[in-house]
Each structure stands twice: as structure tokens, then as C-alpha cells.
Design a protein around this nucleic acid. Sequence first.
DNA 1: CCATCTTTGTGCACGCGTTCACAAAGACAT
DNA 2: ATGTCTTTGTGAACGCGTGCACAAAGATGG
Lengths: 256, 256
Amino acid sequence: MATGRTHRPATRSRGIPEATVARLPLYLRALTALSERSVPTVSSEELAAAAGVNSAKLRKDFSYLGSYGTRGVGYDVEYLVYQISRELGLTQDWPVVIVGIGNLGAALANYGGFASRGFRVAALIDADPAMAGRPVAGIPVQHTDELEKIIEDNGVSIGVIATPAGAAQQVCDRLVAAGVTSILNFAPTVLSVPDGVDVRKVDLSIELQILAFHEQRKAGEEAEAAGSDGSGPVAAARQESAEQGPDGDVPAVMPA
Amino acid sequence: MATGRTHRPATRSRGIPEATVARLPLYLRALTALSERSVPTVSSEELAAAAGVNSAKLRKDFSYLGSYGTRGVGYDVEYLVYQISRELGLTQDWPVVIVGIGNLGAALANYGGFASRGFRVAALIDADPAMAGRPVAGIPVQHTDELEKIIEDNGVSIGVIATPAGAAQQVCDRLVAAGVTSILNFAPTVLSVPDGVDVRKVDLSIELQILAFHEQRKAGEEAEAAGSDGSGPVAAARQESAEQGPDGDVPAVMPA
DNA sequence: CCATCTTTGTGCACGCGTTCACAAAGACAT
DNA sequence: ATGTCTTTGTGAACGCGTGCACAAAGATGG
């Protein structure tokens, strides 16, 4: 998983553990695929394999939602799709705004995954006046000045931030002030929000760095197993890469 | 954090807990910002606030790297930047390939966060012959047929998959066969890989669904606290959103 | 109606991660 | 040199998440 988490710690929402909630979309995806192939029932073992998790974990996850399985048979695919959808709140319509229509914001606007499953892109917002009115993914971009009005008129409670890092906190504050209570943040910054507001973070740079760590470790172990020179390949340079460019800003939108 | 995780469970790599590794990039970012402002030292309390974590946790995290602090003073910013960079393997060059140059792939190619910190986009690969040769972010797109050769010639060990879901596993298999051992997956699928290969997942759709869950819960609690009508606002429809389009495919690349 | 077989639901134990709280260590002033 | 004050580094307790292993439940066949 490539993601950070800025959540109220350990809030077992209505008895459903956070870890379980995070897996429900995974199960739902696998179940939807089965549903399309008209598979009527599925065992915990099969479904777990499809979702890439342990079958006992899956059964325990489902037990938090209630007892929807039949012993000796398995789970009814259609019924489970419905139950999970309902639990996740996907049976209702969620208007979403995307702020910051640079490369990434535009890609998100075009992303099919948003449209499906109850999420609807209600508006695209950018600080660049030149962008205003220009359609992206068939939706005209609106100027930041309209942000509050857009949020209120459309009853938006979920906002996506795809601005450069410098603008993210400002945008976040305005979104929250206007009534947004859930934020998906793609900007490489730590956002601070009042209690009651959820923030989830997607940070490409961080994911790569984590991979690099493990990659380096693999290379080190390998060399150690082979040559076994005390210093290993991790001797490299000493104090030479101190300075580095500013943090990877998202494409370009809004003045900081 | 918006990210899934497909990791070998609880592998404490060289004594450094996985949870700590995931926070190191966060600390590094905060430290880099301090470094640019020429701040010489920082206390665990200050740095923890900047990174949005508990100060005790931060100190324990650093203790896994060694004792780099001075009691009564704090941590030397420059030194810590260097130590963390080295630990994460960012003092060396990591060539990366991006496979699937649709909207998302193109946005990733343009993303500044890749270029900084030792990551270099070595090649862009797409299955569409019409894309071949066309430059994206200044780099010419190459055809999938060249994949193996590109990986080997450039010594690539990290691959980014931004193809539609249907093509992801195939691409993954080819990357792994060619020598890639770390994968960042943006396609909405569970990838299966042999032992020794790390996969990190970034799934926009899943992040939104998790937000929706909490959003729904907030709305439910609110209504319960106010009106307290047994059914609440979560009565809605019953069994009507069973069918749904196929899963949100990433833009478009490669035939499935 | 009974026996057998499959699969769920869960009690239990274990380990990781987080946090508190404090002793040790060093800076700094006198 | 000594005392005070700040801040680190960590011991210990707690809670969450995971996975094993098994009993209960129900289907299925005779």
C-alpha cells in the first residue's frame, strides 16, 4: 500500500476495526468481478486468495458486519456485494471536488475509478485564471474564488487536493471552513485539520523511498552472502549529498 | 495514508521496524525544509510537530538508526538529513521505468517528486504503437516489446505500473522476469509476485471508499444525536445497486 | 432420520507498534 | 567545579491486528 495515514488513532468506528474497513474495498472489488462472471457463491478461502489475504482474517472481517455466510457453502456473492457497498456508504451519491488541475489533477479527473461506485466529480477548481472555463474530462474548470460557493451549492463533503505542496494547507483550510470533512491529499505535505475531519494521504515520493530502502537492503544482503567484505557496497560516499532541491512539488497550480 | 501494502509480514529489516521505515521519508522531508531555512539543530518535539507524529515515537525511530542526538540540545539537521538519506538508500541513483503512459502515467512522468532524491525516470513504456517515439515529459515513449531490453540495459530494479487493471499482472510478470524486484502499482488489482519482490500499492478508489465509510458514519452519528429516528439517513435504497460497471480502469494502455 | 463432510465463526495466544514516564546525559551559567 | 535545566534514549505497559486451530452449523447423501 502506498499511503500514509492521518487518522484519529484507533477509533473503532461502530465496532468495525480500521484495518478491516481498509480491506472492505478490496473484497468488494473481488466480489464485483465474481458477480460479473455470475458466480453465485464463494468460499472464504477462494475470496481470500482473490483479495490476497488470509482466509481467517477475511472471515473475521465479515463477522464484524454480521453473519452473512452459510456454513458448508460459503458466501452469497450478490448479497455480500450489497452489504459491503452499504457498509462503505457506496449506495449513496458522493459529490467530490478536485482542487489543483495540473498534470495529476487532470489525470484524477479522467480517472474512471472516481466515476464508478457512487463518486461523482462535482467540480474542478484551479487557481490559475487561464484555466477557468477550460474543460477537463468534460468538466469546466472553475476558479478558486468560487470554492466556498461550489462546496455549499453541491453539498460536497469530500475534497481531493492535487495542488503543489505550498498551497495545500491553505486549500485545506478553505475546504474545511466551507464544510468538507474528508480530504484525500496528494500534495507532499502534512496537513493539519481540526478534529472530526479525516485526511488520507497519497504520496508517491514516500512510496518510492520505502521501496528504495528495501531494494538497498536486498542488494546489501546479497553482497554480504556472496563476497562478505566487511564494508559491503554500502560504504559509498560520506557527507556529500547534503544539499538537495526543494521537495517534489505537484505540477503547478496556485501561488503559494 | 492512502496506500495498501503487500509486504512480507513483519520483516524487521536489519532491526528497523517497517513502521519506522515508512516514517523516515516524512522526517526527511521536514528536515530538508529546515535545512533550506538554515536551521542548525532541532528538538524531537519540534520535528515531531512538523512531521505530525508523537515525539516519543520519533525519538524511538531515530534510536533504531543510532544515537544521533545531543541531550539538552536536539538533533543536528544536516547530519540527520545525511543519515536518513543514506539509510533509505537515496545517496545512490535509482533508475525507474514507468509502464503505461495514459493520463496517470504521463502525470507521474511529469511529477517532480520522482526526479528529486535519487530517482531517475530511465524509460517510459507503453503498449500502444502510436505512442512509440512520442516524447512525454521530455522522454520518448518506447514500445512494450523493448521492456526486457530496457530493464537489463539500464539496470532497473524499480518499476511503476500505471496500466489498466487487466494488463497489470502481465506487465508485472515481465518486469519481474527481467529483473525488477520492487514495484509500485497504481492499477486496481492485487498483484502476485514471487518471494523477494516488494510490491506497494496506490489505489485511489480504495482511499475514497475508506473516506466514504467514515463520512457516512459521521453523518449517521450526527443524525442519531439530533433527530434519532431509528432508521437514520442510512435507510436509502434496498438492493438496487447490485450491478456496476467494471472496475475503474486506469486511462488506457495495453490490450488485456 | 442419521452420518459424514464442508465451511463458517471465533476463542486464544502471540507479536508489533504506540505511548507514558523517567533516568541518564550533556549544555550552560555561575 | 558545581548545580540547574533541557532534551534525549529507553524500559515497561497496553492495545490492536493477525493467524492458528477448533467447535458449531448446516448441507448433502444414503
